[in-house]
Nucleic acid binder design. Sequence first.
DNA 1: CTTGCCAA
DNA 2: TTGGCAAGG
Length: 324
Amino acid sequence: MGVQFGDLIPKTEISLKFLRNKTVAIDAMNVIYQFLSSIRLRDGSPLKNKNGDITSTYNGIFYKTIYMLENGMTPIWVFDGKSHELKEKTKEERRKSREGALDSYMEAKEQNNLEEMQKYAKRANFLDKKTVDNSKKLLELMGIPYVNAPSEGEAQCAELVKANNAFCVISQDYDSILYGAENVVKNITSSNKDIELIELEKTLSGLNISRDQLIDAAILIGTDYNPGGLKGFGPKKAIDTVKKGKMENYISEIENYSEIRKIFDEPNVTTDYDITLKTPKKDELAEFLIEENDFSKDRILPNIEKISNLLGNKKSQKSLEAWF
DNA sequence: CTTGCCAA
DNA sequence: TTGGCAAGG
């Protein structure tokens, strides 16, 4: 979900070309859930292998990575670790909403209502550990780097940007700017030509507040750690309040305020990661996708060659840069 | 989500 | 070229 800042955050429309030759940190779980909900057959069912395991996730990771490489980007996929205990309420809400969607799906199925089935199937996404582990394995076989965040993926993505190891975070949520990421990019898709760039500096100067105040405003509106925020506060009132220096008046009303602040001020991240591109393991990659997960050989093999060539070029580019 | 195909 | 639609496992 993320903080609901509404239209108050200034956005710049950029083109795909703008991201050429840039490294991007992808909030993996965020994107994987999107794959899970949107990569489906006409009847709303996800892609599956012979064993019945869902493979929409692998399809999305494979083709999206190739798409990004072809457009000159170098992706780093960042996976969530253990979430903070204050996030339990949010996680519970999401679980309930998925279960509700599943019930509605079953009901629609009984009534043979295809439209309703599609609608609710998209919302009933359950991601298991095996799928996440296999997603990492897939990236490894492709030679694409990934990072295991100790806690929040978005915080770890922000760390990569702050450390100049990536230009921006890719996520549907803006929350990474709260963790200090200078740039967040939304909506990289092949159909959507307009991509949104959100810049921390521009956001702060546009609203005329500090990052400190932005975090306070977010807490008033509601974060994953205090869902719903303080009653009566939307983006407008929250920004107004911090701007006028009236945050002090509300701190006592916010449960766990200092603990929540700490999550954003001193995010739990690691600086120990390997983000170098590796040579793809072509045979194992083919084995994983074609043999284990029933992807079509005719589609996969040419794409494996493509990855191999694209990464080969990138690596020689990088070593050339290092030489000079 | 992505690609591929086909029609305007 | 562009846009809409079907298919992918």
